[in-house]
Design a protein around this nucleic acid. Structure first.
Lengths: 261, 261
DNA sequence: CGACAGCGTACCGGTGAGTGGAACGCGGGC
DNA sequence: GCCCGCGTTCCACTCACCGGTACGCTGTCG
């Protein structure tokens, strides 16, 4: 949106990726003209490349426009890190959900943001903006803080030095204050969010740390609405789940984090 | 694997897709040489294209080879049909799992196979070969039969006329017999699998039918091991869950099926 | 220890795949 | 009936892509 948007458009691959990435998290169907607008590519080019993408089952063409196709879903589910994490963690997240009956998240760091790998919730789940495969800033989410607190120093520095957009009146936008919170996270093994990303939502999160090296692999959280939801109640459950997943992960080969971007 | 494998390799995009698709469901890390072998592309070319893919965050490069990157996961989770289905169905699948504590699947038809969109299971889940984002033949799975029974005639004909590989001694490989089973599926609203894809596994499935048109949108199943698991016990739960999801889907715009391939 | 085989990387001149401007037909809205 | 925006098609230019060749490295044989 606001950042540097310029995936090289002078190569076929760049154009193809640009078209695929033109789909935002909430877009289902985009007409050709909209793709032209978003990518800045000439109409003829978009038409041709999109056609090729349809051919390769990465896009579907409908009467009213294009949409991301099932082939992408299949490929995406093969992504190494995410898949391993999902397969290992799911049963534990499942247990956690069953015990709490509140929305459960699993996320990892990608560049300077959180990417959610799983979201488990029931019918009455709190109105949260997160989606599986979606992104959120780190400074205003419990999972983000858990990841950030245990991230390598350069990553933490990079994230703290960037802008910390205010998403609600409660968002912590002062780097110093945030750093204090991160200290507490390291000390207690738990991170909190109190209406910092979305008004009306509370979260507790715990990091999943590599048993050997202590590096953060991921983080998970329980989320609920202000009012009935008391984060403190779930502290132990969250911590235990994270520990259990960490234990399982060490018994598997490679689940790593990403380059600093 | 065995089928026609020749995504056009005379275009950059084709090569890129070929490289991405070279990753099988069980591959984490593939060295350059292996990609060369699987794609049949010249070494220099694979090196270059893979490099570009890394640049676009569709591949990660590690010391020991390439692997599918997080960017793909993010894109995949935006795929329209799958995402809608997931978001709508998840809470219901959740309930179903909680009631049964057996492995729950949600799948849809893609071409002439089943693609699993969700798989929910606990620690003691039956050793099933299915994976989220993975494929299975339709003739030997409960979900597949549920989808096939309600598929459009041409699709059904295409699937039945193709080879019906025998996966276990119990696999139904006679088109006539299979067709009889499909009749029963339509009559009862339930499909069964009894060790037809994997020895030791039983399944009940129900189709999710569009309330208006009656078209199949997806199907879901409960799976368990021979012995303790009695599929009949879950008939009502499975049917009710499918109906509930169907009801929810009609209150949303577009969740459709795919072209016949 | 030298020879060798397999791998990843780097280079570079030729060429055809890809390019995108221009033009067309269609619908539907003022 | 006019116009605007959309999707589609066409085609001659050209530059991005190609892939053969060559290099350096790391094992592992004989």
């Amino acid at each position: 949106m606001s950042g540097a948007e310029d995936a090289e458009l002078d190569t076929v691959l760049g154009k193809a990726v640009a078209i695929l990435r033109a789909f935002g998290a909430d877009d289902r169907l985009l007409p050709l003209a909209e793709l032209v607008r978003r990518t800045g590519l000439p109409k003829g080019t978009v038409h041709r490349v999109a056609g090729d993408l349809v051919h390769h089952r990465l896009l579907d063409k409908t009467e009213h426009g294009y949409r991301l196709a099932g082939g992408l879903f299949e490929l995406g589910m093969r992504a190494a890190t995410e898949r391993t994490l999902l397969e290992v963690a799911m049963p534990f997240l499942q247990d956690l959900y069953e015990r709490t009956h509140e929305t459960v998240h699993l996320g990892l760091r990608e560049g300077t943001e959180v990417v959610y790998v799983a979201k488990i919730g029931g019918h009455r789940q709190a109105r949260s903006p997160s989606r599986t495969g979606g992104r959120m800033p780190m400074h205003c989410t419990a999972i983000g803080k858990a990841l950030l607190a245990h991230a390598e120093p350069d990553v933490r520095a990079a994230a703290l030095s960037g802008p910390l957009p205010r998403r609600t009146p409660h968002t912590v936008v002062a780097p110093g204050l945030l750093e204090q919170q991160l200290d507490r996270v390291r000390a207690t093994g738990l991170a909190y969010e109190r209406e910092e990303s979305t008004v009306g939502l509370l979260c507790v999160a715990a990091p999943v740390l590599d048993v050997g090296t202590g590096a953060v692999l991921a983080a998970l959280s329980v989320t609920g609405p202000v009012g009935r939801f008391r984060p403190e109640v779930h502290e132990n459950a969250v911590r235990a789940t994270a520990a259990a997943i960490a234990g399982m992960l060490t018994r598997r080969p490679g689940a790593v984090s990403a380059p600093p971007s």
